[in-house]
């Protein structure tokens, strides 16, 4: 099993060592470089700004039509769901700002207990946010809070 290289072999080719090492270093760097390159380029082409409602509002002009992610509190009373077309409409509300959101597809089970929602999509020129993904964010996600009385 552990018959290791014959030392004579090592000694017969002393000159190849420096060169041998170099070619491995170059090979390794090339591969790591390739991985880093793919990572960085895909990162640039896929990264999206993550904004609050306030930031979205102040940057309105530049972000219209651009893919963005917005995180804001959900106005639960505004949730409307059309069963036949699977169209979900709701408002995100934060410090006086209101963002109407439209989403088509299967509604996440946790939406109704969501404190705040992350929507990914783009802001239309009409001021309505077209969401392609919704992620429900609730502080009580998997750990429900004790009821108000139980808390203290």
């Amino acid at each position: 099993m552990s018959t290791v290289a014959a030392p004579t072999l090592e000694q017969t080719r002393p000159k190849t060592h420096a060169l041998g090492k170099l070619k491995f270093v170059i090979g390794g760097l090339l591969i790591l470089g390739a991985i880093a390159y793919v990572t960085l380029t895909s990162f640039q082409s896929n990264s999206i700004y993550y904004l609050t409602l306030n930031e979205l509002n102040t940057q309105r002009a530049t972000v219209i039509g651009q893919p963005v992610r917005v995180n804001a509190p959900l106005d639960k009373s505004s949730i409307q769901f059309d069963n036949s077309t699977l169209t979900l409409k709701f408002d995100l509300k934060d410090s006086g700002l209101v963002l109407p959101v439209v989403y088509k597809g299967v509604v996440p089970d946790t939406l109704t207990e969501g404190e705040s929602v992350v929507v990914e999509g783009h802001l239309g020129a009409d001021g309505v946010f077209q969401a392609s993904t919704i992620l429900v964010k609730c502080p009580s996600k998997y750990e429900t809070q004790p009821t108000a009385a139980a808390a203290k």
Partner: peptide
Amino acid sequence: GKKVTVGAPFFDQVNGPI
């Protein structure tokens, strides 16, 4: 101070060839 995120397309694009 700016929050930038990536989603599934990034991971697919990077890890697919790897």
